[in-house]
Design a binder for these strands. Structure first.
Lengths: 155, 155
DNA sequence: TTGTATGCAAAGGCTTTGCAGATTG
DNA sequence: CAATCTGCAAAGCCTTTGCATACAA
């Protein structure tokens, strides 16, 4: 008789990591936070507030108020647990921060359905080719820089 | 006796170009549109809606309703007269479209005062150096791609 | 004149905030 | 038990829209 393997629920599987992440940021371990982190560990995203809410409602049957999701995301962002993405369509999106030094990635966004694909290299020329090979068309890109200008550095 | 040179007001100076631009897009030549174009011909921007309003109020003593500015910008954008920029801070910004084929540029934005400087080259590595030389610090950049994904191409 | 554009005010859509009750440590 | 967190509702902020009036062609 074959020994049946123990099935581990997603939450169970990620519990250690979640506990660690919340503890490191001095956050209390609550149901909404655990569920959100569990989702973001298993799925790359990025996710809008509404997506996070709906996915958790469907998959985990957990109802989280949207104000809580907003607050959680803001807190997580400040704690560098998540990174905000702005695709210029009026929705804030969030994904887990990539803490490997020097690592960052970009996205390609469908202008119709807003689906996103991850793009892992940066130089623009190569990126356009890679993006095209992912099946996207009519590609444009937006590149903006942020920083602190000379005047504000002395404030 | 030295012949005094005729001084030409900004609006006078740009009038021909403005008339041409509006006519080409089948727009009526109204006071708000003329004033906005006059501003955007003389200043690079990009400008927020509020900036356009306030600058015109101050410089030309023209009071334009913000709804009109929004509508004008949307119409101009559709007519490719202006291009919208999104710096992820909740404000739409607009600048005159650069119609030279293959030309586009980026910006570096001060996170404190939101002042922007134009950055005219694209490859990321070089851009960071150029941006730094403009006096900005703590530079980050955001690069996003937009397009139509495989599924939506068949709709 | 006739369709277009403007101004004003109200409504929309995403996000933030106030506060009382629930929960975590 | 004390500090934090959540849910609910109201408010904020940028943007869009409805409608009557004003204006360009």
């Amino acid at each position: 008789m074959v020994k049946k393997r123990m099935t581990i629920s997603p939450t169970e599987k990620n519990k250690a990591l979640i506990t660690e992440m919340l503890k490191a940021a001095h956050f209390r371990m609550t149901k909404p936070r655990t569920a959100i982190l569990d989702l973001m560990i298993d799925n790359h995203g990025p996710f809008t507030i509404e997506e996070i809410q709906k996915i958790l409602k469907k998959k985990s049957r957990i109802s989280i108020d949207f104000a809580t999701v907003y607050r959680t995301m803001r807190a997580f962002e400040k704690a560098a647990i998540v990174t905000k993405c702005d695709f210029g369509d009026g929705f804030s999106r969030f994904e887990r921060t990539d803490h490997r030094s020097g690592h960052h990635h970009h996205h390609i966004v469908c202008n119709i359905c807003r689906k996103t694909a991850r793009v892992d290299i940066c130089p623009v020329g190569d990126l356009i080719n890679l993006a095209k090979s992912s099946g996207f068309d009519s590609i444009t890109h937006s590149l903006e820089f942020f920083g602190v200008c000379g005047e504000c550095q002395t404030l």
